[in-house]
Computed example of a mutant assay.
Amino acid sequence: MYFRFLTALILREALFIKKNKDRWLKDEAAPPVSPDEMASAFTQTVDDLAYAKTFYAHSKTTNYLNKLAARMYLNIYRNRKEESSRLKTFWKYELPLTIQKHHRTLLFSFVLFTVFFLLGFFVSRQDVEVARNFFGDSYVNQTIENIEKGNPFGIYEGGNPLLSWLGIMINNIKVAFIFFVSGIFCGIPTMYKLAETGAMVGIFDQLFASHGYGIQFWLVVFVHGMLEITAIIVSGMAGFVLGKSFLFPGTKKRIEAFREGAKDGVKIMIGIVPVFVIAAFFEGLITRLYNDASWLTSFITAASTVFVIWYFIIYPIQLHKKNTAKALLTRQTL
């Protein structure tokens, strides 16, 4: 009789674990960050702990749930105590993991931009009028005049630095949000705008390369261009995430998938706003120093490149692998 009771208890515990294990692992590997989700997850975990203590007081499951509930409580207490930690969590964990989740979409956005960059470069190489059609005669004539004077990038030296910074920043952020919001139309306008931007950069590059300043273009323009172009590509990704979530909901209801895609897209857009701010600062105040402080502009270009590769590619992958390994270890323990 006791043996039957013990067997039934073990089977009940196994079913209890099977029913809730995925949720526990998810809460441990990727804890909720919004207050409502965090409170809901904590309440569910406490209920599970109470159930486990009632029927399996000395089991590993009870011990695990006790530790999980304690960790979640500390997270809630810490979030209430320090609102600044929310920003740290966003930049250190939430945004990189969201980017990693959509790395394939980011790759698509990058490839699309690069393909049209190359098309713009080589087409304008065959037809010099392409640059004038894109930028207008005034801009092209002024650039050529600067090249003939021996100051090819003099276009960046004009205007008030502070006003240039603010103007560029506002314009770029506005354009980026258009990229994102356009994704709601199945991503087609986003695709067009990203392709157009890639072609424009390629044509701009060829304008200098045709006069023997191809290498200088990368060293000077990418003082701000590395961050600016990266943010544009990422904003294109956010638009594609929005469009893809509606077109391809998978096993979820379309409205749920769209809501999740919109949430991820908004996170990404919030995340790249500071990138636009810094890029505009570099363009308005630093790029113009390429003649007087070339060591500084070269350092900023190199540092920006390292940051982009690390934060948008390497770090999200490392963070995802770390969380996956941690979840796998926990699963084996259970």
Rank of each mutant, 00 (worst) to 15 (best):
M1K: 05
R4I: 02
R4C: 02
T7Q: 15
L9R: 15
E13C: 10
A14S: 11
A14V: 11
I17W: 03
I17G: 00
K19G: 04
D22T: 08
W24Q: 08
E28Y: 05
A29V: 02
P35F: 12
P35T: 03
D36Q: 15
A39K: 13
S40I: 00
A41Q: 12
A41T: 12
Q44M: 11
T45G: 06
V46W: 00
L49D: 00
Y51I: 14
Y51H: 14
H58E: 10
S59M: 03
S59C: 02
T61M: 06
Y64E: 05
N66Y: 09
L68D: 09
S84R: 11
S84I: 10
R86P: 01
F90V: 11
F90K: 13
K92H: 07
P96Y: 08
K101I: 00
L106E: 05
L106Q: 15
L119H: 05
R132N: 11
N133K: 13
F134E: 13
G136S: 09
S138T: 14
N141C: 03
Q142C: 05
Y156C: 01
Y156E: 02
E157W: 03
N160Q: 05
N160W: 10
I168F: 13
N172K: 07
A176Y: 13
I178W: 06
F179G: 03
V181I: 15
S182R: 09
F185E: 01
G187S: 04
T190S: 15
Y192M: 07
A199S: 13
M200L: 02
V201N: 07
I203S: 06
I203P: 07
F204L: 13
L207V: 11
S210T: 14
I215S: 12
I215D: 12
W218A: 08
V220S: 02
V221P: 04
V221C: 13
L227T: 02
A231T: 09
I233W: 09
V241E: 06
F246A: 02
F248Y: 14
F248E: 10
K252E: 06
K252L: 09
K253F: 08
A257Y: 02
F258I: 00
E260M: 01
G261D: 08
A262Y: 14
D264F: 06
M269Y: 11
G271T: 04
I272P: 00
I272Y: 04
V273R: 01
P274I: 13
P274A: 12
F276N: 03
F276E: 00
G284D: 03
L285E: 04
L289D: 08
N291P: 03
W295P: 07
I300W: 01
T301M: 14
A302Q: 00
S304K: 00
V308W: 10
W310K: 09
W310L: 15
L319I: 02
K321T: 08
A327K: 11
L329I: 02
